[in-house]
Amino acid sequence: MRITVDNVQSKDIIELLTFHHENMFSLSPPESAHVLDLEEMKDPSITLWSVWIDEELAGCGALKELDKGHGEIKSMRTYPKFLRRGVASRMLKVIIEEAKLRNYRNLSLETGTPEPFLPAQKLYQSHGFEYCPPFASYVEDPYSVFMTKVL
């Protein structure tokens, strides 16, 4: 498994992010789907990584700087073919380490509440994230949960 900093220009990463975007909108109402589109993913405050198994794209994850002490995990996605192979856990470790290198005090995220999001919540909990109130510009929403990890 190889993890590398990426951008939103290759065909492979565009297809994965498009799949992710469409899936998020299929699981939550539009006002509750906080997934970034391809243009938003190009923002300089966001670092994107891709995860490769052999020469095949298996997943991705991103870190958005909210301010000098706070980062947010965005666009964590594993292709279904690669589920339960440690892709998300490895990606999450890379993001946590990068957040520490940047001297963030907190690393936070928003994820969904419907059943398909429960594995993601369990993954984040297993890496020390705890439920928290909404952060940044998020508001209470029955389709969202918020989690944070003090670094």
Results as ranks from 00 to 15, higher is better:
L107Q: 01
H70A: 10
S50F: 06
D54E: 15
I95V: 09
I53W: 08
L38A: 01
S89N: 08
A88S: 13
P114E: 11
V87S: 04
S28A: 13
C132N: 05
D67N: 15
V8A: 03
L17W: 09
I46D: 00
R2K: 15
H127I: 04
I3D: 00
L109T: 00
R105S: 14
E72T: 12
A120Y: 02
L27S: 02
E39D: 14
W52N: 10
I95H: 01
A88I: 02
W52H: 14
S137A: 14
Q125R: 15
Q121K: 14
M91H: 01
N106H: 11
R77H: 09
T47E: 11
R84G: 07
M76L: 08
E31V: 13
Q9K: 13
E110G: 04
G69D: 13
E140F: 11
F25W: 08
A62E: 03
P44R: 13
K81L: 12
G86K: 01
A136T: 09
K42A: 10
L63E: 00
N23Q: 15
P119L: 00
L48T: 12
R102E: 01
C60G: 05
P133N: 11
D43L: 09
W49P: 05
S26V: 06
N7W: 06
R2C: 12
F19P: 07
K122G: 09
T113P: 02
R85N: 08
V8P: 00
I73H: 05
C132R: 03
I95D: 00
L27G: 03
E110H: 02
A99N: 03
D6W: 05
N7S: 14
L66Y: 11
S10V: 02
S45Y: 11
